[in-house]
Amino acid sequence: MRTLKPGLKLRSAVCASEVMVIRAPGTPAVLACGGAEMLASGEGAPAGVALDNTRAGGTLIGKRYVDATDRLEVLCTKGGAGTLELDGTALEVKQAKALPSSD
């Protein structure tokens, strides 16, 4: 459980996934990947923690993930095997509108 803030970088305890928080509700929450809470810089994975095969939908680099209430948004900065979840509910990929290149 931690308070997620924009700019916070987290990595998965059980796979290669890394994310950066873009928007956050500002209240304490559990952001998990592959069934284990994600780690901030300097934090180590708890002993014996492993990827939960029922939470192995994978993350893709460059995709943005949001919760159902659209209060949390994270950017995947490194892809991995786990599924992202906020307080036990899987995040969804945010669909981006395709825009022509303008610069």
Binding site: P6, G7, I22, I61, G62, K63, R64, L75, A96, A98, L99, S101, S102
Partner: peptide, 23 residues
């Protein structure tokens, strides 16, 4: 950084360019 990142994330899809593309 939050301004610039918001512009980039809002207008560009990551890795969307083909290898032949050049600006």
């Amino acid at each position: 950084h939050e301004n610039v990142l918001s512009y980039i994330l809002g207008s560009v899809e990551f890795g969307s360019a083909g290898e032949e593309e050049a600006a």
